[in-house]
Computed example of a mutant assay.
Amino acid sequence: MFHTRVLAELAGGLRVLGRFPEAVEAGNDARERVGPLVPRLYPETQVMRAQLLIDLAWCLGATEDLPRARATAEEAVARCRDLPVDAEAPAETLLALALDCLAHHLELLDAHTEERAVREELVILCARLAIAGPEAHEPRLAVALDALARCHTRDGEGSEAVTATERSVELYRRAVGRDPRPYEPELARTLANLSVRLRLRGEFEGAVAAGDEALAITRRLAGADGEDGRSPVADRLRILGRARYRAEDDEGAAACFEEAETLLRELMKAGGPGTHAAGLAAAQSALARALGAAADGHLDAGRTDDAAVALRRLKELTARSPLTDVHAACVSTFARARDRDAEGTVRAWQRTTGESWPTFVYRLG
């Protein structure tokens, strides 16, 4: 059995290194050697076999062989259920790893009903493990709850999604209290998810608060991560911007989207034109909407000079964005502003910019 164990450990090591095709080859070889009779003759191989199947399933998924990855993960779950209680590794801990692997591949295969059932079982199992071993298993429970919240969101269960995410956040806060370094990034990520799910529920103040905290943590961590830390900051800025926009803080939303746009442009210069292009487009589109709403709000309040500043920022955005929806938003916003208070708005524009009212808007219209 020595050679078999070496192959199984090699498969696990190659998985860690990201050398997935080689890991699959070694794992398949080891799997063939551990046939159905071997665990009966050598009970000590049962844990090794279960761990091998988990590693092999992840590697098959990484090579995009999803049907075999699912089948292997299902076999891993079955083997983990059969492990003796006095196994050298806790049977339920391995079962949690196998369930997580299976749920991941079910999600990739769009087998959502089966995925949800597995994730619900995983949450129950992790909650039981966390009672006896909070340091080891509360973070695992936090991950499982956040993943289950995705299922709730997908199934239109917004309240359940928020509740699960709030539990996940609380567990990560406790984990951060014990050891900040590995868990603060996960706390920030889960707070950002909470912001999104609260916004979808119409709880905009809570969404802003969660988004603010997520951004604050991410900014602090980005200082240590350098270049790699700016992409998460841009993502969190967009999430907070959307929450502020729905909370009718249009200027605050615009500030978030403008900063995100700047960061994404810098990242694209460093990493190539194709990197972060989708994020940049989303930030610019959201910025155009926020600036249009800000201009409208200032005009409603009689603040024509502030409206002119928002209009100038919107016009400047069109100069650096090729997006059709951005230019359409500019046309519509300028037209609304002139229609509502032509004389006052035009004078405010001239005071603010020193330019004539942009007639190109009406030619495009």
Rank of each mutant, 00 (worst) to 15 (best):
T4A: 04
R5Y: 08
R5Q: 10
L7K: 04
L10K: 08
A11S: 15
R15W: 03
E32G: 15
E32R: 15
L37P: 06
V38M: 06
P39F: 08
P43K: 11
T45L: 08
D55E: 09
D55A: 03
W58M: 10
C59Y: 02
G61R: 04
T63E: 11
E64H: 13
A71M: 10
A78H: 11
R81Q: 11
V85D: 13
E88D: 14
A89I: 15
A91P: 04
L95W: 05
A96T: 05
L102Q: 05
A103N: 04
E107T: 13
L108P: 03
H112T: 11
T113I: 13
T113F: 04
R116E: 10
A117L: 14
E120H: 04
E121R: 13
L122H: 01
L122D: 00
C126F: 00
R128S: 14
R128Q: 12
L129T: 07
G133A: 14
E138Y: 09
A144F: 02
L145T: 06
L148E: 03
L148F: 00
A149K: 02
H152T: 04
R154Q: 13
S159W: 10
A164C: 13
Y172F: 09
Y172H: 01
V176R: 12
D179V: 10
D179C: 15
R189W: 03
S195I: 01
R201Q: 14
G202K: 11
G202H: 10
E203F: 02
F204D: 15
A210Y: 00
A210V: 00
G211N: 13
R219Y: 02
E227T: 14
V233Y: 07
A234T: 13
D235E: 09
R238V: 04
R238E: 12
R242H: 09
E248F: 03
A254L: 00
A254C: 09
F257T: 06
L263N: 02
P273K: 08
G274M: 07
A277D: 12
L280C: 07
A281I: 09
A286T: 00
A290H: 06
G292I: 00
A293E: 05
D296C: 04
A301G: 12
D305E: 12
D305G: 12
A308G: 05
V309L: 14
L314S: 10
L314T: 00
E316V: 02
T324C: 04
A328L: 14
V331G: 04
F334N: 00
F334E: 03
A335D: 12
A337N: 04
A342Q: 14
E343M: 08
F360W: 13
V361L: 04
